[in-house]
Write a protein that binds this DNA or RNA. Structure first.
Lengths: 222, 222
DNA sequence: ATACTTTTTTAGATTTGTCTAAATTTATTT
DNA sequence: AAATAAATTTAGACAAATCTAAAAAAGTAT
């Protein structure tokens, strides 16, 4: 099945609003899509008739399994394009979102799988959000980017966002490896650099660019 | 100004039908756009009101200078994406067109200029058609691809479509340089390979892939 | 120059996605 | 539980791009 850009934007917005768990409201969706509630209602009927969501009037709505699959496909495209723009075309990371909003609606399946391959199957986009694979599987959300970590919380490094040898060299030099336990002591607003503490070591600071490529999960204090 | 995908497709089709010289007919345009003459008439009025073409009813139409500028912008995007698909993502050259039809409507100017830079400012797409530069200048049409050359016509190599060192090495080995005079003696339909003759040398064959990267202009017999 | 054919345009309808304004349902107060 | 507020849906309209069927203009033939 192929869906219009508008339909895709609705699906994606519903997905982004609530992974898929709770129910979403009409006003809320109108708000993020920058449109009117009446327009949302019209589209909901259409998406329901295409079996992309569960919807009963006045009762809210949520994606169906099929709708979720579509959403993950769009998210995959969006995040791969963001990665391409930032890593290959050297866009600043704040600039990538709007362009990716357009690119994500290009429909060729082969395009996106070839792009994925060319990029080396990255698992996270420049914002640290996970990229679904070509089967629609997404990294468990218990993992997140170091840039989003609250202070003084012990976590364990679970993956890195790129395989560039320069970055891996830097990580090795800092003694940051998969499984390393660390916490953030301070955040400097000026350049978003972070002061990092690893047990038994003096704390040190790392740049925002590096932090964006480090993904962690909560560590049991054990 | 930003134009809809549909408007862009009309502009591009008019441009492709006649560089910009003669007048185009309604039926003819309906035909290449796979739509009906009545729809074409409607769109002509709209494009005229936007000053993208000269049009008087029943008298045919052609692009205005502004329309031509828009057309060249779209052609540039189309051909750069084709080049990207073929050279970077390793699409077969017959596959690139349809995907580029979608990508060409992505509007970011920065995207296309960064892409151009990343690709090394290629001057020809995988079909041998020239890529307009970011000022809308296009290689003079007196230059064309070796694959489109009639038999037994003396031409002079004027440029090559890629700078890959492997290809340049092969060209050097064949004694094909910018300025080399040659003619095509035979075309083999099976694999589209070409038998090439350079003065004072035994003729030899070159592959379709290589021919696609050789651009020539008519040589004065001098 | 009259009749026929082809091309082009008009008129009116359709689809998609949107809107406003009014009506309806659900939720919250008191 | 009645009144009020908030969220949601309906009804009717609009713009973009398309279509069909019919009318008008241009071109061609005899």
């Amino acid at each position: 099945m192929n869906y219009s850009s508008t339909e895709e934007n609705y699906i994606k917005a519903i997905y982004n609003l609530r992974g898929n768990v709770q129910t979403v409201g009409t006003n809320e969706l109108a708000d993020v899509l920058d449109t009117k509630p009446a327009s949302v209602t019209d589209m909901l009927k259409k998406l329901k008739s295409k079996k992309l969501l569960h919807y009963e009037k006045y009762q809210g709505f949520k994606l169906s399994p099929e709708g979720r699959k579509v959403a993950l496909g769009i998210v995959r495209k969006h995040r791969l394009w963001e990665y391409f723009l930032a890593e290959i075309l050297e866009f600043e990371w704040e600039e990538v979102h709007d362009v990716a909003e357009e690119l994500e609606h290009v429909s060729s399946r082969k395009l996106i799988d070839k792009l994925d391959e060319f990029l080396g199957h990255p698992r996270f986009d420049p914002h640290g959000d996970p990229i679904p694979d070509n089967m629609g599987r997404i990294q468990s959300s218990s993992q997140f980017c170091l840039t989003k970590l609250p202070l003084n919380t012990l976590v364990e490094v679970s993956s890195v966002g790129s395989q560039s040898s320069e970055m891996l060299e830097l990580l090795r030099h800092r003694n940051i490896l998969i499984g390393t336990k660390l916490e953030i002591k301070r955040r400097f607003g000026f350049d978003n650099s972070l002061e990092v503490k690893i047990r038994n070591m003096a704390s040190f600071t790392i740049s925002e660019q590096l932090a964006q490529n480090i993904f962690v999960k909560y560590a049991r204090k054990a």
